[in-house]
């Protein structure tokens, strides 16, 4: 049992692979990729009516699975927050889309696709959102350079 809320405990208990963590006093649930959408549905039914944000983290070679997909949920009625995290590999960075559950995840998932190249299956319109359509690469991946141009009179640090 955690000290967050019985609601979250009950929610997490329904999924065998889900692991509840305490991250600096915040509830974080780590999920298998296959449980991602099912858990989201259960969370919505449990009262998390807002999906605040979907984003990703690129761990490059530091972790066995390269990308973490992070979704922040909010329950206004219970005044609770819950963070869902799952991992996807570099070969097939694919995870189910949350848009059918929360339409508000639309832009956020498009941004994660644009910036990290994570494919959200079931997203109605998964296209680039911030970068131009003919842009190559996904800028927030760690192997995408910052793209700094050399500046005259400045040799303080080199950005690679």
């Amino acid at each position: 049992m955690s000290d967050f809320s019985p609601l979250i405990d009950e929610l997490v208990a329904g999924f065998e692979s889900a692991v509840l963590e305490d991250s600096h006093g915040q509830a974080v649930v780590r999920l298998q990729r296959d449980d991602w959408v099912d858990f989201a549905k259960a969370a919505k039914d449990a009262g998390f009516e807002v999906c605040v944000d979907v984003t990703a983290v690129d761990w490059m070679r530091q972790r066995p699975e390269r990308f973490e997909v992070v979704a922040n949920l909010l329950s206004m009625q219970h005044k609770l927050r819950l963070r869902m995290i799952t991992t996807v590999g570099r070969q097939e960075p694919t995870v189910g889309s949350l848009v059918p559950i929360w339409p508000g995840a639309d832009f956020a998932e498009r941004e994660a696709y644009d910036m990290f190249g994570i494919v959200f299956e079931g997203h109605p319109d998964l296209t680039r959102i911030l970068m131009p359509d003919d842009w190559e690469g996904h800028p927030l991946r760690k192997d995408f350079g910052v793209g700094a141009v050399p500046v005259q009179f400045k040799a303080s640090h080199q950005v690679d």
Partner: peptide, 23 residues
């Protein structure tokens, strides 16, 4: 919202801002 990930260094490993206007 600010989603901040640190890997123990002096620079953020990942910083993401959840912009209200965006949503």
């Amino acid at each position: 919202g600010c989603y901040l990930v640190s890997d123990g260094n002096a620079r953020p490993y990942r910083m993401h801002m959840r912009g209200p206007s965006f949503a």
